[in-house]
Amino acid sequence: MSRMLENHAKLMHFFASSDEIVGRKKLQKIIYILKKCEVPFEERYQFHFYGPYSEELTLRIEELCNLGFINETKEEKKNYYQYRYQLTDAGNEFLKHYQVELPAMGERITKMKEKSSRFLELVSTMLYFEHLSREEVEEKVRTVKSKQNYTVDEINEAWGFIEEMRRTLH
């Protein structure tokens, strides 16, 4: 069938491969990291206060929720609200009619879900500057993320994580 809601379908496929995602910030960073690992999501990202952020992705998720394809649960935390996302039965049904050609990503999603959103913010920020040399990337992290005070260990772990993400095919 044709291209109706092609980008929405890719996101639904992502949720189908991930059981549930907890946290909007985590969701934003996971999609970005996958995108940088050659998964062809088309949502465009810009650098924001908390690292790469896509307004298109936020809007598309809202549409998927309003259409009943994704379920969003809001939980009150100390100073903020936290959101959980899951594919609904209607979403599953829609996907049955839709041929989505995306590389397998289940294993990578599981690994990212295990990490904190602070760590994923670091990884996505490093990927944002990946056209620079390794030293320049680290320098950028120290200047644009000075308040986060990332340690050398965290930065090294992030380099390893990026390699692992790119090595893992499924």
């Binding site: 044709s2 109706m4 809601l5 929405h8 946290g23 909007r24 910030k25 934003q28 924001h48 206060f49 908390y50 952020y53 307004e55 298109e56 936020t58 809007l59 598309r60 809202e62 549409e63 903020y80 609200y81 936290q82 959101y83 959103s117």
Partner: peptide, 24 residues
């Protein structure tokens, strides 16, 4: 000749209160 167009296909954004540190 048969096209579904969604509001998210447009480039404009709403005010967001910055929940979960998404946007300032």
């Amino acid at each position: 000749y048969l096209v579904v167009d969604s509001s998210s296909d447009l480039p404009y954004d709403f005010y967001r209160p910055g929940e979960e540190e998404e946007r300032l």
